[in-house]
Nucleic acid binder design. Sequence first.
DNA 1: AATTATTACAACCGCATGGTC
DNA 2: CGACCATGCGGTTGTAATAAT
Length: 257
Amino acid sequence: MDVYKKSFRYDNSKSEEEMDGRKGPWTEEEDSVLKAYVNIHGEGRWNSVARYSGLRRTGKSCRLRWLNYMRPEIKRGNISLEEQLLILELHSRWGNRWSKIAQHLPGRTDNEIKNYWRTRVQKQAKQLKCDVNSKQFKDAMRYVWIPRLIERIRASSQSTSGQPPTITNITIESGSVQVDPSFLPELSGTSSDSQVSSVTDLTDCYNPQSVPNYPNNIRNGSGFENTAAEAWESSMETVWNEENIWFLQQQLHDEVL
DNA sequence: AATTATTACAACCGCATGGTC
DNA sequence: CGACCATGCGGTTGTAATAAT
């Protein structure tokens, strides 16, 4: 599932770099060498990997390539709704502790989560003309974005009976998270989505004056097109274990009460 | 159809941390 | 204790792909 197989055009052909240590995108040959070496010797000792594998890369580079791209358990593809929810929740608690957050998302790397945050979440904040750490934006996330995600997760679980247990089993105190689904911001990230419109939705629906009495005051959002988002969501692969579900339930419980 | 703007994400960098001598 | 080295982490950059104009 190599979605991202771009061929960057760093100048990889310089013989000096070949001697001193290459930079830029990894080639398939390099990947093969790294994979073979790690399969034999295991992870860690990255400087040794760099030194003895024949790769002209730094230990750092080898480590990064392995952890963020080549590990067999790496999950590729779009971030699922459940994963988005977990990222938002955990980030609200831990801030930019990407590595820590990633530990609770099996198959996802800190780099991927960081990229998700920067490209999606920070962009929303920018559109709202507020800082990502501001109360305004945190309220928008807490009272608009997250409930929306929960609703969508619930909806998707109801439409897929017989599925393994998922995060959709979360129980939230009645009345605490009741938001008109059509009101909430678009979160999807497919290339077919209109990034601008999704941002505009969040901007439009967020009304600082009405928020203090949330959740009852969140109303009147205009709907927006979900087609692309739903197509994207339906293609998601979600792997959840009991521990993750329990963990998120705790997170949500703490937030709601 | 061509050009410009935006998005996604791999990879790099600098700094922090921890282990060893 | 301090110097050195390896590794980990978070911020940032660069570029291909895609969307918008």
